[in-house]
Every structure is written in C-alpha cells, then in structure tokens.
C-alpha cells in the first residue's frame, strides 16, 4: 500500500488493530514518515477550510446580487397578558361598534390593510456628490419632499430616461401622495427581469389595496405566498392570513 493511502486509511479509522499499531510505531520511529502524516493532516484540514471559503464566497456573490437590506415591516407583538387584555378590549369595542358598523357597512374597504403594511421603500442609495436628476430626486424622496421628487421623476419618464429604479421610486411617491392609480400604472412598467421586480410586485399589491381593487391585490399576495424565496414572502403570508 502506498503511503498516501495508508495514511488516509489511518485517518478514516479503517486500519485493523494490528496495522494501526505498526503505523504508530513507524510514526514514532521514522521522522520522514511522521512528517508525511503531519503534511497530510494539514491538507485534509486545509481542504475543508478551502471548501468552506469557496462556499462563503458563493454566498457573498448571491448577497451582492440582492437589493440592500431593509428592515421588514414593523409588526407589533404583545406578550400573552397584554394580548388577552387586548382581546377583551377589542371584544368590548366590537360590541359597542356594531351599530356604527351597520350604519357604515356600505363602505368597508381594505384601506386599513394598506396603511398597516405600507412603509415607503427604504432608500439606501449612498449619498454621493453625483448630481444626476435621479440622485437629486432620491435626496428629495429621503427628505419626504414627495411633490418635488415626483416632478423630477416625471420629467425623466417623459424624456424616456426612467430606469427601473426611477420608476420604482416614482410609484412609491404616488403611494405617499395617495395616487394609487398612477402608482399601479408606473409599477406595471417594471419588467420581470428587473432587480426591482420582486419589490415592485409587493408594492403593486399594496397599491391595489389603496385603490380598493381588492381582488387584484389578493391575487398578487397569494402568488408571493407561494414563492418562499420572495423577499416579501413573510409579509405576504401575514397579510394573507388577515385577508381570510
């Protein structure tokens, strides 16, 4: 048996008791053999470390193709006692509100859902001195100066210069300004190959809610719940439960 194989079999515990004894005697007596064993051990450990390094760089590559981290929509959680108290209060409130509900029932909408789930898209673009119009618009967006931001984004669109990110932010501005129909038209222009597509779908669902087109909204939410890799999968699931 060649040394390489012998040493491998030793590491893998495949030597017979007799062979192992012989092996250990050689390690103790032959410097060159014990060096070879040490070298092979380093290589075995090293191969694991190199493999791990390659896996981590694959993940980093996936990471670099993802949109920047943004916190998930805030969901308020109660502890158990608060929750019970909350339920009692809610029950009482419902009883009290029944007459009001009967009066208003003609106008139940999903506005509340929209308000709960909509958070303006976090704009994480780094501050840069670059004063192109999109950058300027994003600064205004960040400063919540929506009307002015919209002006710039619309000019871009009119000139046919609107990138997917410009369209995406423009839709967000429309939602902020309670113009869901415009938001819907804008979001629909974002193609399915865009890096903003997943985000656009989620916001499209919210825009439909805002526009009281509940069925269309539900359709999108349902399809997101069926895509575990979707960035808004969890939010969609929570929303879906509420819709039932």
């Amino acid at each position: 048996m060649e040394n390489t194989e012998l040493i491998e079999r030793y590491f893998e515990g495949k030597l017979s008791p007799h062979e192992r004894k012989e092996f250990e005697t050689r390690v103790a007596q032959e410097t060159s053999f014990s060096e070879e064993v040490a070298l092979q051990r380093t290589i075995r450990e090293g191969l694991r470390a190199v493999g791990r390094g390659r896996m981590l760089s694959k993940l980093e590559e996936v990471e670099s193709n993802m949109s920047a981290y943004h916190p998930p929509t805030q969901v308020i959680r109660f502890d158990e006692r608060t929750r019970q108290r909350f339920y009692w209060a809610a029950a009482a409130a419902i009883v009290l509100l029944i007459p009001v509900y009967l009066l208003l029932k003609a106008n139940v909408s999903h506005d509340a859902l929209f308000a709960r789930y909509f958070t303006p898209y976090e704009n994480t673009a780094t501050q840069s001195a670059n004063q192109d119009p999109l950058n300027h618009a994003l600064q205004l967006y960040r400063a919540k100066n929506y009307a002015q931001a919209l002006g710039i984004l619309e000019t871009l669109e009119d000139k046919g210069n609107a990138s997917d990110s410009a369209l995406f932010y423009k839709a967000n501005v429309h939602m902020q300004l309670e113009q869901p129909a415009e938001a819907i038209t804008t979001l629909k222009q974002i193609s399915s190959t865009s890096t903003f597509y997943d985000e656009a779908q989620w916001y499209l669902a919210l825009a439909y809610f805002q526009n009281k087109e509940t069925n269309k909204a539900k359709e999108i939410v349902t399809s997101i719940t069926q895509t575990p890799a979707h960035p808004y999968h969890q939010q969609a699931q929570e929303l879906y439960k509420e819709l039932k």
């Binding site: 694959k58 993940l59 996936v62 990471e63 993802m66 981290y69 943004h70 916190p71 998930p72 575990p228 890799a229 979707h230 960035p231 999968h233 969890q234």
Partner: peptide, 18 residues
C-alpha cells in the same frame, strides 16, 4: 442542488439581519 441553498439565503437574510 446548491440553488436551493441560495434560495434559502435570499428568503431569510432580511429577517435574520433584523
């Protein structure tokens, strides 16, 4: 099938960071 692993990364990364 490593693509499944990458899909898991994408699916839970935001939640984990948060």
């Amino acid at each position: 099938d490593e693509s499944k692993l990458m899909a898991i990364y994408r699916a839970y990364r935001n939640d984990f960071i948060f």
